[in-house]
Design a protein around this nucleic acid. Structure first.
Length: 809
DNA sequence: CTCTCCCT
């Protein structure tokens, strides 16, 4: 009896009555194998087939084998499985265990899921993009085409309420888990000590203090090898095997890590998160967790996926800990302090929030959806990444300008590859060499396939020579992809590894900069190649894989490229330019993104071209590019003042002036070589064209350029804050008894009164009030400071002056 | 020993 048996009756009753049911069951409950068989055997519940979705190929095959064994059969009879590489399905198969990616293709090909009665999503808590999408599409099918379809979401740890709500209030059935207790020991970590050093010490301590085999979790390959080296150097025990374990290892090496140790020997397995869920290691009693993992993060801005090292989530840490209690009580060492556990995030972020979404966008387009709105997704895809993904698809020709799927897009969606790689294969097939495209796609999707050379040509030769089982699997896929890529009668010699990479990743075309090994990518980023690498002598490269760096990226995989083949991708730009001699010429630049291939003089502009270019320049850089002097800027400010109090005066704001350029500015451009040849005076005269002739006089009355004073005049600043303003020495206003007004007496000028030495004294909008009021105090101070100037008691009746009394009188 | 992991 497994814990799951206790809730089977409830589960089957819930499935009978509801279109969707959620089953929460921790590891060890036995849900994966027991539930599908129980559903199949329930009276009159399932007429057709049951699909069981697993996140990994290994898990799919293992589940099918265990279920078949429970029926006394082998896979391919009642229970079968289907993954990308292998399939055991027979005519009598009722339960098909498939990987999540297989399901996405299946439902896109047949949205009605003909012959399928139920879909079970196992390990849904892992929140892979395919599982999220698969559930959303299945839910859509259920609503529109298949009311009778049953959906069952199974999960170990997850906010079940969220999933239940997503499925229209689906009932939640809860089962117990089963595991042995695991004691947790917080070892802590000295922040100045290297991770490898701390881990090696913890491993040696565990080997000394504990029995059984040990599983250590580290973020990556580099750390694993460094820790293994340290432990081997210091270990004085010939009965311990130190074994690395990570995804890129050969299957034989992985098996060595997974097998139970022979009697009398112990094992220290140093692993990445691959050992968290995918693989079970025999005989582990001790887990040592460094608390870090390396995760991919997609940057929509650069279109690149980079690896970042992050602290594990609480659920990952629990999963790792649980690995010590599979077969007997165990112990877990954690390289952090207990309080730090509270600082960990609860779960790792779902893939849909982090990943490249071009595949998702293409699948949705094929489903007939331009966005993810209205689909049953726990987390909608981030808007920025989704828009970028659709942009990539448009550039590949998979979407048309209106956003709909093109014939090419339909073709790409039918290929079981990421859209850019599908495009690469389709392009190669169209040019007569689908096999070349498919091999490149394989090398790009499998790390280390064909060797480690940076030169894609070497890697292709390496793949052809490789006799390993991994290479054999890859070749099987390559042939399938090449067939699916389509066929073309005419072979074209334009199909080279370089042109194919450039077609799929145009922003990664690279041109050598001055220094050896330094390149500029079409995306505008810098990239670097070891100068001793033979490829570093190439002037042009098509870069297939880039390693993340802070300021620049390193080139991991690239192909040589004949720039002549780039012609169709280049853009041409004509522009007016000034030579050092001052002559205006037309230049033409040929460029590929940020890479300028050629920039040359193509002639002198004719009159019409010149005017058109100058107009374009104004529109592009705006009116600030003109030489506004005192006169033109002053007139503009006066007009702006009038417009603000009476909108029947012309609007002289930037947008309005550009909109009316035909009436004032464009006539000025005729015969001019450049915008800065238009002087202040010409601009002022042009602006006057905007004033109706019968208002020219009115302008002088309502918004005069200068204030007339008893001795002359003073400039009015119409741009001043708080309204038009005049700075003037106070003595020049002696004898003035009314405050100066403009705009037909409606607006008082702001008077900034100055001392004889032009120092500010006071600001007033009421001159008579000032004379009567604070003048007395100002006068007293001024008399002290400027004794030789007249400071009358009653300035309103005095005579204006700028002079001092003659010396000695 | 630059490159977590999975999948069509």
């Amino acid at each position: 009896m497994l814990p799951i048996h206790a809730v089977l009756d409830d589960l089957i009753a819930a499935v009978r009555q509801n279109p969707a049911v959620v089953l929460a069951a921790p590891p060890g409950a036995g849900k994966t194998t027991v539930v599908p068989l129980a559903l199949l055997q329930a009276d009159g519940l399932i007429q057709g087939r049951i699909l069981v979705l697993e996140p990994r190929r290994l898990a799919a095959r293992a589940a099918a084998e265990r279920m078949a064994a429970m029926l006394g059969e082998t896979p391919g009879q009642t229970v079968g499985y289907r993954t990308r590489l292998a399939s055991r399905i027979g005519p009598g198969t009722r339960i098909e265990v498939i990987t999540e990616g297989v399901f996405t293709r299946l439902i896109l090909d047949d949205p009605a899921l003909e012959g399928v009665s139920a879909v079970l999503f196992d390990e849904f808590h892992e929140r892979s993009l395919d599982a999220d999408l698969g559930l959303a599409l299945a839910r859509d099918s259920q609503a529109l085409l298949r009311e009778d379809l049953k959906l069952i979401v199974m999960s170990a740890t997850l906010d079940m309420e969220g999933v239940s709500r997503l499925l229209g209030g689906a009932p939640v059935v809860q089962a117990e888990g089963r595991a042995y207790p695991v004691e947790t020991i917080y070892v802590g970590r000295n922040p100045v000590e290297r991770l490898e050093e701390a881990m090696a010490r913890a491993c040696l301590a565990a080997l000394r203090d504990e029995t059984g085999s040990i599983l250590g979790f580290l973020p990556g390959q580099g750390e694993i090898h460094r820790v293994a080296g340290l432990v081997r150097d210091r270990l004085r025990d010939a009965n311990v095997d130190v074994v690395p374990l990570y995804g890129a290892l050969d299957k034989a090496e992985q098996d060595r890590a997974i097998e139970r140790s022979p009697a009398g020997r112990r094992k220290l397995v140093l692993a990445t998160s691959v050992a968290e869920t995918s693989l079970t290691i025999e005989g582990v009693r001790v887990v040592i967790d460094a608390g870090l993992s390396r995760v991919p993060r997609f940057e929509p801005s650069s279109g690149l996926t980079r690896l970042v090292t992050v602290r594990v989530s609480r659920s990952s840490a629990e999963q790792r800990r649980g690995r010590a209690g599979r077969t007997e009580p165990g112990v877990c060492y954690r390289l952090w302090d207990e309080e730090a556990t509270r600082g960990l995030v609860a779960h790792q972020r779902p893939e849909i929030l982090e990943a490249d979404l071009t595949g998702l966008a293409l699948d949705l387009a094929r489903w007939g959806a331009r966005s993810a709105d209205g689909l049953a997704l726990l987390d909608p895809p981030p808007a920025g990444a989704f828009v970028e993904a659709r942009g990539v698809l448009t550039r590949l020709g998979a979407l048309d300008d209106a956003g709909g799927l093109t014939a090419h897009g339909r073709h790409l969606a039918g290929l079981p590859l990421a859209p850019r790689l599908a495009h690469l294969v389709a392009r190669a097939a169209h040019g007569g060499d689908g096999m070349l495209g498919a091999k490149i796609a394989a090398i790009l999707s499998e790390p280390g396939l064909g060797g480690r050379d940076v030169d894609l040509g070497e890697r292709l030769r390496g793949l052809d020579r490789d006799r390993s089982s991994r290479a054999a699997d890859a070749r099987k896929l390559v042939e399938r992809w090449a067939r699916a890529g389509g066929r073309s009668a005419k072979a074209s010699d334009e199909i080279t590894p370089g042109t194919l990479i450039a077609a799929a990743f145009p922003e990664r075309v690279a041109k050598a900069r001055g220094k050896p090994g330094e390149y500029l990518l079409a995306s505008g980023r810098g990239a670097f190649l070891d100068p001793t690498d033979p490829l570093a002598a190439e002037p042009w490269l098509a870069v297939a894989d880039l390693g993340g760096g802070e300021a620049r990226d390193s080139i991991r995989l690239a192909a040589t490229l004949d720039p002549a083949t780039l012609e169709p991708m280049m853009t041409t730009e004509r522009r007016l330019s000034r030579e050092p001699s001052g002559r205006r010429v037309m230049r033409e630049a040929r460029r590929l993104g940020a890479i300028v291939v050629e920039d040359r003089v193509v002639g002198t502009p004719d009159r019409g071209e010149l005017v058109a270019l100058l107009r374009a320049e104004v529109v592009e850089i705006g009116l600030d590019g003109l030489r506004w002097g005192e006169r033109a800027a002053g007139l503009r400010a006066r007009l702006a003042f009038l417009h603000a109090i009476d909108p029947s005066w012309p609007d002289v704001s930037d947008p309005a002036l550009i909109a009316q350029a035909e009436r004032w500015l464009w006539p000025l451009l005729d015969g001019v070589q450049s915008l800065d040849r238009i002087d202040d005076h010409a601009l002022e005269q042009a602006l006057r064209c905007l004033i109706p002739w019968d208002r020219q006089r009115l302008l002088e009355d309502l918004a005069p350029a200068r204030l007339i004073t008893p001795l002359g005049s003073a400039a009015i600043d119409y741009t001043a804050e708080g309204g038009p303003r005049v700075e003037i020495r106070v003595q020049e206003l002696f004898g003035v008894t009314t405050h100066p007004m403009i705009a037909g007496g409606r607006v008082p000028l702001t008077l900034a009164l100055l001392s004889p030495a032009r120092r500010p004294i006071q600001v007033t909008a009421d001159l008579p009030g000032f004379w009567k009021g604070s003048w007395a105090a100002v006068r007293a101070e001024m008399r002290g400071r400027y004794p030789r100037h007249p400071w009358p008691e009653n300035p309103a009746e005095a005579e204006a002056t700028t002079r001092a009394k003659p010396r000695g009188t």
